[in-house]
Computed example of a mutant assay.
Amino acid sequence: MNTRTKYILLISGISAFGLSIYNKYNAFTETSFNPVEFEYAKVFLGIGILCVGLYFFNKNWRNVLSKIMIGAFGICLILNLYLVAQIYESRQIQNRLSEYHELDCEKITDRFKTDLKNNNVKYFSGGLVGSGKLSQNIKKYGIENFELGCQVYNNLECYNELVRSYLRKEYRY
């Protein structure tokens, strides 16, 4: 194996391992589910590590094993980078939601006026019944929908009522 291949394997293996550890502790807390991508990444990391061990014991297969290691560590790295992007997006959404969640009904009215000026109106759908095509329908009006699952917050309902009255007034919705 040449020096370039060794460095590629070392960098991709360490990066894949490091991101796997990062995702292990963050994917479950940020997304509250066990992503299937993480399970596949662990399998490919295991295959890569197994090939590293076999590389030192079987001299006849070194060329094939080095290619398998590059592929396994590469796939693991790509899957982990995908999960990092999902975690980042989830954190951004949570940060935006926390801004609104902490406001009472009076302050949220001021926030709605600011959002309306900035063309950044949001809708917070929640409750036991799914929102169906709500996201698609309100996107036509430049409104972003945040699905909260079963949770319903009174202050966000105040904001939603302002959005509904705005839609009725402006678009006869």
Rank of each mutant, 00 (worst) to 15 (best):
V52N: 07
T109Y: 13
E106F: 13
L103S: 12
L116P: 00
Q151Y: 13
L79E: 09
Y171W: 00
E144L: 10
V64W: 11
Y40W: 13
A72H: 04
L19Y: 02
G46P: 05
K140H: 12
N2C: 10
G74K: 12
Y82M: 09
Y25S: 05
S131C: 09
C158H: 06
E170P: 08
K67Y: 14
L77D: 05
R96Y: 04
R91I: 12
M69G: 07
N154M: 14
I49S: 14
S32T: 07
C150L: 15
S15M: 11
D110K: 13
V129Q: 11
G74I: 08
N118D: 13
E147Q: 15
L65V: 02
L103T: 15
S98D: 15
C51E: 00
A16K: 02
N145M: 12
F56D: 03
L103V: 13
T29A: 11
V152W: 04
E161D: 09
L54T: 04
T109W: 12
L81H: 00
N160I: 03
F56Q: 03
T3C: 12
I78R: 06
F73M: 02
Y40L: 03
A85R: 13
S32I: 11
K139P: 13
G13P: 01
V36P: 06
N137H: 00
R168C: 00
N145I: 10
V36W: 08
I8P: 02
V163C: 00
I93N: 08
S66D: 14
E39V: 15
E30S: 15
Y153R: 10
F56C: 01
I49F: 02
G142L: 08
I75F: 12
G132V: 06
M69F: 10
L65W: 03
E144C: 04
Y123F: 08
Y25G: 09
E37S: 14
G126W: 11
W61V: 13
C51Q: 05
L134K: 03
E144V: 08
I108Q: 02
R62K: 13
K169C: 08
I78K: 03
F146A: 10
G126R: 07
Y171D: 04
Q94M: 11
F33Q: 14
N95Y: 10
R62I: 07
I138F: 00
N26G: 08
K67Q: 15
I87C: 07
L162S: 08
